[in-house]
Design a protein around this nucleic acid. Structure first.
Lengths: 323, 323
DNA sequence: AAAAACATGTCAACCGGTTGACATATGAAA
DNA sequence: TTTCATATGTCAACCGGTTGACATGTTTTT
């Protein structure tokens, strides 16, 4: 059996209370006893049972993360940072891959509450999950509006969309098409589209948006339907990459005949497609802010918190827009 | 305050024991009471406290995952599958990004034990962490030898290395160079190199291996030192991508003058670099096997378990080796 | 010499659920 | 009619650590 405080006490020749005092640095403890206790813990290979501790102090130092999938480089990188920052603050992270499925998301939400997490950071959201409105449980959304009361952190999507579209316009593109993720989501990322449309109109150009499907077949369709397209602003780098692929197959030269810009600029895409123009999201900063907002909610419950935090991204010009 | 069993009991007009019985489906419960109890739980928004439950049943249904970083597409995808499969079995996942740092890894190991995880799956390992030898705590390694007693799951790295090297040989390459990850790690992935060397020698060719550094500067050096290189087998796709980039900069045509093959074949690399030849790892199968082995250890403690599981990968021929 | 600070111990309640023992009551089967 | 399966209640111990109250020393300070 795993040793408990009582066993440590016996070996150290002190009382359980004293061991607990050493563990928590409370009250008076003599240096020699402290050493005795630590020796006993080492000898027994004792690890304090955090489950018992959590039960009593009513705090688990657990944060639930709900995102579509770590497989996606953007979420993978975001989650990496979230976990990292959480760890420096003494928090642990329960990972949930919702895969964009509402049923999974609800189950995870339920599970996290049963496991008494201290807070939740979510970037997965299927419209109309009112379950996020949980009294007494701090929640922060990342790039997703979860409810009117839940703070959201996101990059400056409007500005990013503007940067991307404007770049294509500046490069002389006339038939610029935007490819969106599923627009059913209530996400600030929709502002990228809004910006695209605004910039287009401001330049007397006609906006045209395609919504991506699971298997990127929409891209073929786009080329069929718009043979004169000369600029594509994809709402993420993976889509941009598929555009490039399709263009290659059609012998459309990038950037001469077609200019492409993506969105996200994750480490992975930077490594794998260094030539891709993109709008890089401030992933680390988003993570920092999200944790900060969550911890703030946990600490001073009813303090007013910023409902929307927007962090600027960065335009990266690559070969796909003509260098 | 959060409602507890007692509160539910009061609202439902039954005893706490009855509520617990409903919750756990134990003993005799009448249909009408079951309904009453469920209604009360719903009304109160009651979530059973898993922390209290875990304490008593001495099982948390938590699995610790220690990997370098979710930011890397391989680990991101692996972790996605691990979490997914774990979830279907009722297990939750505590995520740890060790970043290849020994100190972090040790801290995580410590943390996971304090949090009473039921098992650990680790793919991060700095040589000489004997801490993995934990009595009574099931551990499974993924692509890393953790200790002589801990089961490892990996793809068939020797076979993969052979496939990759043989392909380059078959395509007529004479000066084939291998680029490795840090070889200090005790990983089955080293077998890729072994296979490379064996195949080279079997074809009367001289093997030459470079070890990658953090910033890929070694790749420039490789080209400087070996102007006649005509084939490169990179031990992962990210490295392969850097090779391609460097080749482009030097106006070396791929695949005419240089053929390149990577390793991993993650979803992300398949999307971003569809043309890259690679050896695709059976990531999902690795995850499945790892969980299976872990759960087996948890269930029948002292049952003998397979110490090494090797799952075959798949060669994907792309344009970078000449189609 | 008295007061204050230091050091440790004993004891019990508590966190929220689980479980076994035991009691009681009802309706159905033998 | 007796027995048994069903249905629910009461009670208390337990999981492992925390904490406050209180007691009893020993040192330091004043």
């Amino acid at each position: 059996m795993k040793p408990k405080i009582e066993d440590v006490a016996k070996v150290a020749g002190v009382s359980p209370t004293t061991v607990s005092r050493v563990l928590n640095n409370r009250g008076y403890i003599g240096e020699s006893t402290r050493i005795k206790v630590h020796k006993a813990m080492e000898q027994l290979n004792y690890y304090p049972n955090e489950v018992a501790r959590s039960l009593f102090i009513k705090k688990t130092f657990l944060i639930g993360l709900i995102f579509p999938t770590t497989s996606n480089p953007f979420y993978g990188q975001l989650i990496f940072h979230l976990e990292n920052i959480a760890a420096t603050l003494g928090y642990k992270v329960l990972l949930c891959n919702s895969q964009g499925r509402e049923d999974k998301e609800k189950n995870y939400l339920n599970m996290l509450q049963r496991n008494q997490v201290d807070g939740i950071i979510a970037g997965a959201h299927n419209k109309g999950i009112e379950e996020y409105e949980m009294p007494n449980l701090p929640v922060v959304g990342v790039d997703r509006y979860l409810s009117s009361k839940i703070p959201v952190v996101s990059s400056d999507n409007y500005h990013g969309g503007k940067l991307a579209t404007q770049l294509l316009v500046n490069k002389g593109c006339k038939n610029i098409i935007h490819i969106n993720g599923p627009i059913s989501l209530e996400t600030p990322a929709n502002l990228r589209r809004k910006a695209y449309e605004d910039i287009m109109r401001a330049n007397q150009l006609t906006p045209l948006t395609y919504e991506i499907d699971d298997h990127f077949t929409i891209i073929k369709q786009l080329f069929e339907e718009n043979p004169r397209v000369d600029g594509i602003f994809a709402s993420d780098d993976l889509i941009a990459s598929q555009v490039i692929r399709e263009a290659k197959e059609r012998n459309i030269d990038i950037p001469t005949d077609l200019k492409v810009i993506g969105y996200d600029g994750t480490e992975t895409t930077r490594l794998l497609l260094p030539g891709l123009s993109t709008v890089q999201q401030p992933i680390k900063e988003i993570a920092e802010k999200a944790i900060e907002l969550l911890v703030k909610q946990m600490d001073d419950k009813d303090d007013a918190i910023q409902l929307e935090t927007i962090i600027p991204g960065k335009l990266i010009e690559g070969e796909t827009t003509g260098g």
